[in-house]
Design a protein around this nucleic acid. Structure first.
Lengths: 129, 129
DNA sequence: TTAACTTCTGTAGCCACTACAGGATCAAGA
DNA sequence: TCTTGATCCTGTAGTGGCTACAGAAGTTAA
């Protein structure tokens, strides 16, 4: 059993974030030692690591919770997992497209930018769009 | 002079957002009519439109404010504008790279996803990373 | 006159943390 | 034993950039 600091180190989830997950009901309340300190089992730490991986993948915390529950359930509903993941992938793809469009627009905007101008062509551009 | 609803329609900035910008000091407090309603000049509306364009470009509100001030200043400091814009562009590029990496990881993760499995390979993957 | 619309102020919620304050407890060294 | 520093506790507030109310007041059109 580990104290919260060790659980944080092993899972890569910040101490405050662990307590936040507990408050929000993302993870079950851990056991407490006699001095009221939280004590985490290896399984608890695994849960935290799972959540961190989901978050690193860009899943929302709500989705991460769903995936965690699916992962801990009796039968892993692969269909639900797939749907969740594919929706997420398509969101990521849309964001990439948006950002590329944005990058192009910004490139165009700064193309005429020359140092030393009194009147900035970029600002003029934004004003007159 | 326009009421806030008309200013919102003309600028594309939501009514609540206009009031929020006022509270935050992003735009100066507008005149008030005798009935205490905000009245916006064409210039005020132009400011809002400018801000909306900056936000559409993905600039933070703080940056948008800086750009607006540069735009309204006596001499437009093109150098500052350029720096701000290029920093922003590089941030956008970094985000694109990150998202592409994410997309690849998600693709790999769901590659083995077949409907009907009792044990989900994607969840197994997240657990054992 | 009635109804629908608009505006006002103030406050709270969203997401996912993050950062305190102020106190208690613990472990290790002098 | 004392001290120092690390760790932990609870509770609260802040971040960004809105967005969504509630409840009241005023305006406009039929």
């Amino acid at each position: 059993m580990f104290a919260i600091g060790e659980a944080s180190r092993q899972s890569g989830v910040g101490i405050d974030t662990i307590r936040y997950y507990e408050r929000e009901g993302i993870v079950p309340k851990p056991e407490r030692a006699s001095n009221n300190r939280r004590m985490y089992s290896a399984h608890d730490v695994g849960r935290l690591r799972f959540l961190r991986k989901c978050r690193d993948m860009g899943f929302s915390l709500a989705d991460a919770k769903v995936l965690l529950n699916l992962s801990e359930g009796d039968s892993e509903d692969c269909q639900s997992v797939k749907e969740l993941a594919e929706l997420h992938i398509s969101n990521v793809r849309m964001k990439i497209i948006e950002l590329k469009r944005l990058e192009a627009a910004l490139n165009e905007l700064t193309a005429n930018c020359n140092i030393g101008n009194v009147s900035c062509p970029m600002l003029a551009q934004i004003r007159t769009y």
